[in-house]
């Protein structure tokens, strides 16, 4: 009886994961994926690490990025909003990464010492997170 219920549970979990895989496959059809002009996600990954973004943000794929001062950036490519204030548009994000206080006076996000290319690369990496 015990062996039976184990087998049954296993069958159920296999069926469930097959199901979610199928559902996931359908969910892939998206009409919009943000693209950053001239941004390179791989370089962005390194830039995010170098500028210690993980002190405040949890960022998948960045070593040690478990910060909780700011929001987690997991699945960032699917966020419709930027900082809860703006549409999450690539050019706005590039500006936000460089100089957030110029866009929102009271924000806890500091201005970062980045050149434009680094900001573009970082944005490209963040948008690659789904």
């Amino acid at each position: 009886m015990n062996a039976l219920s184990v087998a049954r549970l296993r069958t159920m979990s296999i069926a469930l994961s097959a199901w979610s895989a199928l559902l996931g496959a359908c969910g892939e059809q998206r009409d919009y994926r943000p693209q950053v002009r001239g941004g390179d996600a791989q370089r962005g990954q390194i830039a995010l690490l170098r500028h210690d973004c993980g002190v405040c943000h949890a960022i998948p794929g960045i070593i040690g990025a478990h910060g909780r001062v700011g929001p987690s950036l997991a699945s960032y490519g699917r966020f419709p909003h930027l900082a809860g204030k703006f549409p999450n548009d690539p050019e706005l994000l590039v500006r936000w990464l460089t100089d957030a206080p110029s866009m929102a006076v009271a924000t806890a996000m500091p201005a970062l010492d980045l050149d434009e290319q680094e900001a573009r690369d970082m944005a490209a990496y963040l948008y690659s997170l789904e």
Partner: peptide, 19 residues
């Protein structure tokens, strides 16, 4: 949903809406 931030582990947050 990704419209607003997820509210998991809320007490560990430093800021509300970053402000």
């Amino acid at each position: 949903t990704y419209i607003g931030p997820a509210l998991h582990e809320w007490p560990a947050r430093a800021y509300i809406a970053g402000v």
